Simulated scan of single mutants.
Amino acid sequence: MSTVVSRAARRRWASVAGGTALLVGSLGVAPWAWSAVGVAPTSASAEAVVERALASGDVSYSATGESRGSLALPDVRGFGGLASLVGGTTRTRIWWAGDSHWRVDVVGLTGEQDTYGLPSSTTTWDYETRRLVTVAGEPSARLPRADDLVAPRAVQRLLSALGPTDRLSLLPARRIGGRDADGLRVVPGDARSTIARAEVWVDRATGLPLRLRMVDRAGDDALVTTLSGVRLGRPDDEVLRPPTTSTARRELETAPDLVARLAARSTWQMPDELAGLQASDPAAAGTPTYGTGLVRVAVLPLPGRLTREVVANVTSAGSVSEDVAGGSLVRVGSSLLNVVLAVGDDGRHAYVITGLVDPTLLDELATELLASPPPLRYGR
């Protein structure tokens, strides 16, 4: 069965509000396992599976998680642990009461880092450094965190981005971690996407996404993220509460990383269209996203005073600068995620351009921006 996502379905997905009964349970640890034996085919359509997954944000559960990425990005100073997050294995413990009340612990060989999601803030507790950092609000742009790669969140972001030309089809149901799961294949409708296909498995009873497999155009697994040991039911409130230890070094921030700081300081009035791609929200002139469906490109204007530092960090990690009309380009790439740093000859205009798209598309946006630099934002 194959289908194309309808406009009406996309509107419904955008307005879905999740709500499920809370069942009693506790955290369990179990190895991830799946089996196709004895699982009856689903009677739901591919669109219905998508809608159930998007409506599952408030399904309460506890679980362990594992994400494995094979994106060979250089470890660039200023971009935190992005390279290891998308290029290695991350193991997590998850307690989820809803989209605005959750906890995700990253368990590593040298320590543990816990992130607590609250309605108006996010708090991170690092056991090793004794740092308790609270970020007020949600930045307009930021680097990915480990909780972004937890299977339910990763699947929901993928499915919420689907466009009218992206194709859906059902996969055979599986038994994942002791639960019946309906399978879904997503194929981008635009060949400029670096995603060849994505495979999703969704818990039949609750709609909770249990597994995501993203395959690149070479046919290799670029990202696989899975839940195991799932226990339904609201976690205890004490588990969801950030620590109050008196020995912690407490910090309050509004911009948790370099990307968030750059987004907050944007000075240019970005165009409503680049390389034939419309801005998804032209009013958000500082950090727009261009494109639709699974071909989307984020453009982050880079303040001139930080350009040299960022270029030096990227080139020191092995990337090479190439002169083009109006400036220069520095490319950072992998099988799935590509980045172009575009720097204008005037020394004032510079941009970080990135997406799960072919690097030639990023070059098109970059050269267009360098050829026609945007003016200052109104009122600045």
Results as ranks from 00 to 15, higher is better:
residue 25 G to N: 08
residue 57 G to L: 00
residue 188 P to W: 05
residue 15 S to C: 07
residue 171 L to E: 05
residue 179 R to E: 07
residue 343 V to G: 04
residue 120 S to P: 03
residue 267 T to K: 10
residue 292 T to H: 10
residue 132 L to R: 11
residue 144 P to E: 02
residue 112 E to N: 12
residue 110 T to D: 15
residue 376 L to S: 13
residue 349 H to R: 13
residue 80 G to N: 03
residue 340 V to I: 13
residue 81 G to F: 00
residue 64 T to L: 06
residue 85 L to C: 08
residue 72 A to Y: 02
residue 258 L to Y: 09
residue 370 L to D: 00
residue 335 S to L: 04
residue 265 R to E: 15
residue 351 Y to Q: 04
residue 174 R to H: 12
residue 355 G to N: 01
residue 347 G to Q: 03
residue 95 W to H: 14
residue 123 T to H: 08
residue 130 R to V: 10
residue 197 R to I: 00
residue 209 P to R: 00
residue 172 P to Y: 02
residue 170 L to C: 07
residue 153 R to P: 00
residue 302 L to W: 01
residue 285 A to G: 03
residue 226 T to V: 15
residue 129 T to N: 09
residue 356 L to W: 05
residue 213 R to Q: 12
residue 347 G to F: 07
residue 54 L to Y: 01
residue 315 T to H: 04
residue 322 E to K: 11
residue 344 G to Y: 02
residue 305 R to H: 13
residue 51 E to A: 15
residue 182 D to W: 06
residue 132 L to F: 09
residue 113 Q to N: 11
residue 360 T to W: 09
residue 54 L to W: 01
residue 303 P to Y: 05
residue 24 V to A: 13
residue 204 R to E: 12
residue 346 D to N: 11
residue 73 L to H: 08
residue 317 A to V: 02
residue 86 V to C: 06
residue 128 E to W: 05
residue 270 M to L: 14
residue 76 V to L: 07
residue 218 A to P: 04
residue 256 P to N: 09
residue 6 S to W: 02
residue 73 L to A: 10
residue 164 P to N: 01
residue 115 T to S: 14
residue 74 P to S: 09
residue 310 V to F: 05
residue 332 V to T: 13
residue 268 W to E: 06
residue 367 T to A: 06
residue 304 G to I: 01
residue 129 T to R: 11
residue 339 V to E: 05
residue 316 S to L: 05
residue 234 R to L: 13
residue 36 A to I: 02
residue 32 W to T: 08
residue 275 A to L: 04
residue 163 G to T: 00
residue 133 V to D: 12
residue 152 P to R: 02
residue 197 R to D: 02
residue 22 L to Y: 05
residue 82 L to V: 15
residue 87 G to I: 03
residue 300 L to N: 00
residue 239 V to S: 13
residue 175 R to A: 06
residue 14 A to G: 12
residue 115 T to I: 11
residue 260 A to P: 07
residue 137 G to H: 03
